[in-house]
Nucleic acid binder design. Sequence first.
DNA 1: CTGAGGATAGTCT
DNA 2: GACTATCCTCAGA
Length: 211
Amino acid sequence: MKLDYSFYDRPTIKVARDLLGKLLIRESPEGLVSGVIVEVEAYLAKDDEASHSFSGIKNRNSSMFAAPGTLYVYPIHAKYCMNVVTEQSGQGAAVLIRAVEPMEGIDLMQSRRGEKIGLRDLTRGPARLCQAFAVDRLLDGVDLTTSTAIWLEDSSPELGKLVFSVATSERIGISRAQDHQLRFFVDGNRFVSGCARCHSLPNKDAFRSHV
DNA sequence: CTGAGGATAGTCT
DNA sequence: GACTATCCTCAGA
């Protein structure tokens, strides 16, 4: 079932944790791809120096201040990252989706990412994920609750109820506010990005093996 | 497997 | 001109 407004219109940290295990779906003329979210980071509206909203609304971050459920796509290092806007309009809070476990459309992801890339590296990392899902600035500001190009679902019938434990750590790749434990990931899932010390149980079963 | 270093381009100071 | 919420390649164990 597609996630609606009431899912996003909540405290950012709750939304971030609840996004783990949800299905991200992208439909384009080339075909459909999907994956289960295994890693996210929360960026808060207040007292968070690492958040793009910290120094106020700018041209480039304006969709982070839009309604909850809006997609905020940000260009960085000549690549893209995707975020989901949370809380109320004008707050400037969002959750960065850092990694998914590929489910449907692996061939299409493979052709977008390059034939030499292994399965594990297709969507492990925010910019890799955007490339595999063909997410760029054209999707910035899209409403995830109504769009037919990209949206989130609670779960897929064939996966059933996913069982996993949530781990937390500092966020990755930022230079300020590094002490906050605002990164959430599926403990042990091998499609999570980042360093080995951030995984307390390395190489546990992936969701894909449950199908 | 790990860590280091350079490439990359759009936005803001 | 400096800054990134990054990625890829390469060397070494």
